[in-house]
Design a protein around this nucleic acid. Structure first.
Lengths: 349, 349
DNA sequence: CTGTTAGCGCATTCAC
DNA sequence: GTGAATGCGCTAACAG
């Protein structure tokens, strides 16, 4: 009973005693086929376990019904959630999602694009390792299919869906100053070349400078050890900071760990505010205040944008071009928990 | 400069003034082509930005160089990590990974298999919503490509890579009894039909029964509220439990939250041990003891198994069949932290 | 070393 | 309503 190979349309046609055209019609909606024939063909298809060969369809010039997703790391919760959201949109559009990881390496990224292209995906979602890269922009420019950037925009080249990192960091810093903290240190994490980190740093800097406070920036921390020693050093200074603004999840968590280990009361001695929410942020003692990103929305909106273009097909015209390079900035939300000095209500935030 | 469409092999051949075979040879390694010709063709390929059309290759009967991954949810950290590991293996084998999500719905799963099959993926990795399902097993049996199950085995049908949930839960429970706890409650989480949960429950039950202790099972909790009330009720009993064994991450976390909120000292009044590790388990106060699964290894081993078969090609014979249905059980590790009553050393575990 | 040719499975004219 | 023929881009015989 085990079919060694896939039955073809011809097999079905032959078995059902009809022409290939008829079978083709059946699997494409069954229009212009007599009910009797349709039923018979359907039955043969079922019996043989026939599945149309996508490769043949693609070769005929049809859409591949696949889109590529190019992200740094599939296991990263942020991108995994993006992927899940994008997947949902893809399925709603009858398409499959091919996921690839770059580990923020440009060569890997270019190679992934190449492979995806040779598989003739209908469109691409990409979080570029380095949006500035000339090589990347070259490739992107000669690509004939729609591409949407996520998390890290490629301005003037392709449409991008990102979070308003600058405003979010600016507002977060202002929230800290509103608490009365005058010396606010910022731990960026090592990847200072990343768009998101740069924007957040910019927002922080602008806010402290506007308030006339010092810009205390540490761009070198990365693992737990470095965070702990950075905090130790900071606290040993003549005028130690009163608040800590961490720009990414791992740094926030390391900072919290270090603060605990060093027995530094939070927020009374040193307040903490992190960029990006995480599941246990509300459970830790004290609970951690964070800037929350609409992660699902990034993936969803980006994918929707992609399919709009895919299905639109209007390729020329200024309007189309302006939409082609549009930049969508999603709003963030400041979740006020205890670590920044706020005292949330009764709810479990 | 923008190529509207993809150049074909014929385009290249024509442009370079050679036959299509020659171009084909060039893109397939360049053997049996004179250096001069090779250089010229290569240059034309570069200039035209030519990419071989995978669809045509597939149609010629070649491997699609894609494998499908069918999991409940891409955003789930467990499966996201599996995906990342499987992706690495796929890339090492020059293949792409197509990821689909079932949300543990059988119909969705079957549909995903269908679509994947029609795309002619070379192989499949699947975490079945319900490995018992007749419909699933039927489909699996008539599939001509290699399939490997992950996390949830499909015995006697396909090869499977899982964690030894039974032994792990058994050992974890024994660890609790070794601490002297006699009344150990187990919170399974709602999905009692899931293979993993059933196995873990079985391990727990066997261990407490062997020790002559009561089996205190709560299979109904799910969200925070239900966990909190379950714990409240448990503690209100005449003989409240001395330890809590939670079978999945979300329940462990909810339990920890609830214990905190109810001001129940851990582990002195109620010890806690969870199945599955999570990033902050070591940071919480007290740190949470857990059964740690080799998540990456599941994805990696499963993918390696898949490609072994893909490349092997020996399809007949008893040996092949026994390997076909083999069951790989990976070992877990019990991470002893504070919540179970252990006092770990100085290291940050 | 190199070119010619014949399909892979399907959708699509164009006839009947 | 239905079917025969054509070609999508590529590889694999087979000649030269």
């Amino acid at each position: 009973m085990k079919k060694i190979s896939h039955p073809t349309l011809d097999d079905v046609a032959h078995e059902a005693g009809v022409g290939t055209t008829t079978v083709s019609r059946v699997i494409n909606g069954g229009d212009r086929v007599s009910p009797k024939t349709l039923a018979r063909v359907l039955q043969v298809i079922e019996r043989l376990g026939y599945r149309p060969n996508q490769a043949a369809r693609i070769l005929k010039g049809h859409r591949a019904r696949t889109v590529g997703l190019v992200i740094p790391n599939i296991a990263d919760p942020f991108f995994a959630s993006c992927a899940e959201a994008a997947y949902a949109v893809a399925r709603a559009n009858d398409s499959l999602l091919i996921v690839t990881a770059t580990h923020n390496d440009l060569d890997t990224e270019l190679e992934n694009l190449d492979v995806l292209l040779s598989h003739r995906t209908d469109g691409l979602l990409i979080a570029p390792a380095n949006p500035q890269s000339k090589a990347l922009r070259d490739v992107l420019n000669r690509i004939a299919i729609p591409v949407v950037a996520i998390d890290r925009p490629v301005p003037n080249a392709i449409a991008s869906v990102v979070v308003d990192n600058y405003s979010a960091a600016h507002a977060a810093t202002q929230h800290l100053t509103a608490h009365g903290y005058k010396r606010i240190a910022c731990l960026t994490g090592g990847e200072t070349m990343l768009y998101t980190i740069r924007e957040r740093t910019r927002g922080y800097r602008r806010a402290v400078e506007a308030a006339g406070f010092p810009c205390i920036l540490d761009t070198s921390v990365n693992d737990y050890r470095s965070v702990e020693s950075a905090i130790t050093n900071l606290l040993a200074e003549k005028h130690p900071p009163q608040a800590l603004f961490t720009l990414k999840n791992s740094i926030t968590i390391h900072a919290f760990e270090a603060l605990q280990k060093l027995n530094v009361p939070v927020p009374s001695v040193l307040a903490l505010l992190g960029f990006d929410d995480f599941e246990l942020a509300s459970t830790l003692r004290p609970s951690i205040s964070v800037v929350q990103q609409p992660i699902d929305e990034i993936g969803r909106v980006a994918a929707e944008l992609l399919f709009n273009r895919l299905l639109d097909g209007s390729h020329a015209g200024n309007a189309a071009h302006s939409r082609r390079t549009q930049l969508v900035k999603l709003k963030t939300r400041l979740i006020e928990r205890r670590s920044c000095g706020c005292v949330p209500g009764t709810g479990r935030t």
